[in-house]
Design a protein around this nucleic acid. Structure first.
Lengths: 217, 217
DNA sequence: GTCTATAAAAGGATAGAC
DNA sequence: GTCTATCCTTTTATAGAC
């Protein structure tokens, strides 16, 4: 691992003269890294798929780990905000929750998200910054946004959230249920829209039941 | 990948004459595989840590993938039943749930479980059988056992479970919340007993609130 | 069964020409 | 900036002696 692995941000989007080759490298590297993981991915394979020579890759990114970090960081950055509906005040709480659930499930069950998650998880010890960036861009971002929305619900209905962020975390945890587990383990095909909708409904109903003021929470 | 990779079960526990070396290999391989993953783990490293030559490993297991499968399968088998309290009928539902939550969290947050989960996830495409074995021994086993217990709760209290297995899945999903996410991403130290107890309590309370008959579920 | 030594291949990284 | 050709290390797997 070289020290140049830190300069990922200026490597990924600068208006360089030859952006074409660079983009091809990024695209190819993303495919290879996410499909095979960091260790099993080879620079030869990336170079071949990108249609460039290996040396061109090294000229742009310096080393394998730097390229990997650049790829994963850009994928994480693309994750921010996705999977969480904007806090539309005109909608009912139930609708907001259901929409959030649907879009969140759609995002985390996308094949690219699944492979990204697997890759980061398997390399989180070697690349702690990537794990942190993923967490902040993905789960943490989603929880904070939904938590802020739940905190804005006060006199609204027959529900209450004493700890909005904790409730949001619980909500997303419920969404990462058995369906998600089977998908990330590659034990079944990705669910279609109907299955996603059904599970989003189930989780939303359960979540709302748990936070009715008739309960003790 | 060789065809001999299938014979994992008879490789892991047969009363061979020289069980000492074999056990040393298994122990060393488990450490190396779970720490570095399949790709980054080298047979040389395993041989050195086991105190045997590489050829001895190949004599016993044939190939790297067969050794890997043997190790992971044994680790998965050791998972069955753990993390789920036995359905003690003398205890209250709340106590059973809380005990289940505590022991489940303790198991899945154990460093060995975390590394096993990471390893299987990163290799689930190359080794589909391992992913399936893990799922059956771990999450599925836990859900089925708790689901059966929840199904036995009928006239008991002020709660009801229309779909016991689905409720059990939801319960374990709630337990795999933000705390678990941060731990498997290696973003924080493993929680102590107090933190585990507090989260087990929070999940149990929320779960019970969601299934009160006053609710719509 | 177990060891040492080695084959055979793959992969990360670099040199030098254009 | 980009390419071809090459170096060097690592790693899986095997051959043959004891």
């Amino acid at each position: 691992m070289t020290q140049s692995a830190v300069k990922f941000d200026q490597s990924i989007d600068q208006p360089s003269p030859s952006t074409a080759k660079r983009d091809a490298i990024v695209k190819a590297a993303a495919q290879v890294f996410l499909e095979h993981g960091y260790g099993a991915a080879s620079m030869d394979q990336i170079a071949q798929k990108a249609g460039v020579s290996k040396q061109t890759i090294y000229s742009h990114f310096g080393a394998k780990d730097a390229l990997f970090e650049a790829i994963v960081h850009s994928k994480c950055a693309a994750l921010t905000g996705r999977g969480v509906s904007s806090p539309d005040e005109s909608k009912s709480l139930e609708d907001v929750l259901y929409d959030t659930a649907s879009s969140f499930l759609t995002v985390i069950l996308a094949p690219e998200s699944v492979t990204l998650y697997r890759t980061i998880l398997s390399e989180c010890v070697r690349f702690p910054e990537l794990a942190s960036a993923f967490y902040r861009s993905g789960p943490r971002s989603a929880c904070d946004r939904l938590g802020a929305f739940l905190a804005s619900i006060e006199d609204n209905e027959s529900v209450e959230f004493k700890d909005p962020v904790a409730s949001a975390e619980m909500y997303f945890a419920m969404l990462r249920g058995d369906l998600y587990m089977q998908c990330i383990l590659s034990l079944r095909e990705m669910p279609n829209d109907n299955e996603v909708a059904a599970y989003a409904r189930e989780v939303t109903d359960t979540f709302l039941d748990a936070h009715r003021i008739s309960g003790n929470n």
